[in-house]
C-alpha cells in the first residue's frame, strides 16, 4: 500500500502548479534562446531600414542588395574556402590523437590529451595575438592560409572530443576480433575502426566546420586583407546596422540549421549515452 502512495508522490504530475511553473520557465527560456535568430529571419524580409515594430511590409530588397555586395560575398567565399579545409584537417588530426589516446599507453599520454584540448579553454583573443606574432615571423600573415592554420589548431579539440567519445563507446573486442581473424592493425584501423567511428568523425567535422565558420577574433588578427565572413560582418556592424546583414544572417541561419540537424543527430545521442551509465546499449 505504501509503495502505491510513494509512486504517486514521485510522479512529475504530483504537484501540478510546480510542474506548470517549470514548463512556463522552460517556455520563456526557449523564447530567450531563439529570439535573436527569429528576429533576424523575420526582419530580413521587412522593408524597414531600422528594425522596429510594427514592420513596414515584406520585401526582398535586402537579399537583392546582398547579392550585389562584393565585400560580403567575397568574405563569404573566403569563409567557404577556409572552413571546410580547416575542418577536414582538424578531423584527421583529431582522429589520430583520439585513436592514440584511446588505444595506446605511452609516456606523455595524459599530457597529450590535455594539450590537444587546451585551445578550447584559451580565449581566441590570446591565440589570435600569439598566431599573429608567430605567423608574421614566418611571413604567413594576412592570407587565407594563416586563418586556416590557426583554425585547425582551434577546432582540433572539438573534433577530437567528439571522435574520442565515439571511439570510447566502441567495444575493444571489436578490434580484437578483427586481429584474431588475421587482419593487421592497419587493416583493422582502415576497415573496422574507421567505419565504426564514421558518425563520430562526421560529427566532429561538422562541429569543427561550425567553429571555424563562426570564429571572429583570431580571423580578425591574422586575416589581414582576406577577411572571413565574421570579420567583414564586424566591420559592417562597427559602421552602421546595414539590413543586408539580416539577409546574410538568414542564409547563414538556414545553413547552420541544416548543419545543426546533421550534427546534433550524430552528437547528442553520444552525449546522452555517455551520461546515462545505467543503460549501456551496444553501439550500432
Amino acid at each position: 500500500m505504501a509503495e502505491v502512495v510513494v509512486l504517486r508522490r514521485s510522479n512529475p504530475d504530483g504537484r501540478p502548479l510546480l510542474t506548470l511553473l517549470g514548463r512556463v520557465y522552460l517556455g520563456v527560456a526557449f523564447v530567450f534562446l531563439f529570439l535573436p535568430i527569429i528576429t533576424l529571419l523575420v526582419f530580413s524580409f521587412q522593408k524597414n531600414q531600422y528594425a522596429s515594430i510594427p514592420g513596414q511590409g515584406w520585401s526582398l530588397r535586402w537579399y537583392e542588395k546582398l547579392f550585389s555586395d562584393d565585400m560580403l560575398l567575397s568574405a563569404l567565399s573566403n569563409s567557404l574556402i577556409v572552413s571546410p579545409i580547416a575542418a577536414t584537417a582538424a578531423s584527421i588530426i583529431g582522429f589520430c590523437a583520439a585513436y592514440a589516446v584511446n588505444r595506446f599507453v605511452f609516456p606523455g599520454r595524459s599530457t597529450l590529451a590535455v594539450v590537444i584540448v587546451l585551445p578550447i579553454l584559451i580565449p581566441p583573443l590570446i591565440l589570435g595575438i600569439g598566431f599573429l606574432g608567430l605567423l608574421s615571423r614566418l611571413h604567413l600573415e594576412g592570407q587565407l592560409l594563416s586563418v586556416i592554420i590557426a583554425h585547425v589548431a582551434l577546432t582540433t579539440p572539438a573534433a577530437m572530443a567528439i571522435i574520442q567519445l565515439r571511439l570510447s563507446q566502441l567495444p575493444a573486442s571489436l578490434e580484437e576480433a578483427s586481429w584474431n581473424l588475421g587482419a593487421t592493425e592497419w587493416q583493422t584501423l582502415w576497415k573496422v575502426v574507421l567505419p565504426c567511428a564514421a558518425s563520430g568523425i562526421a560529427g566532429g567535422w561538422l562541429l569543427a566546420f561550425t567553429f571555424s565558420f563562426d570564429e571572429f577574433v583570431i580571423a580578425w588578427f591574422v586575416s589581414g586583407f582576406q577577411p572571413t565572413l565574421p570579420v567583414t560582418i564586424y566591420t559592417y556592424l562597427a559602421a552602421s546596422a546595414d539590413p543586408s546583414l539580416n539577409a546574410i544572417a538568414s542564409i547563414i541561419f538556414v545553413f547552420s540549421g541544416l548543419l545543426l540537424a546533421g550534427a546534433e543527430l550524430l552528437v547528442i545521442p553520444m552525449v546522452i549515452r555517455a551520461s546515462s551509465p545505467g543503460r549501456r546499449s551496444v553501439p550500432a
Partner: peptide, 8 residues
C-alpha cells in the same frame, strides 16, 4: 543556438 554564428 550555439551552432549559429555568435556575431550575428
Amino acid at each position: 543556438p550555439f551552432w549559429t554564428s555568435y556575431i550575428l
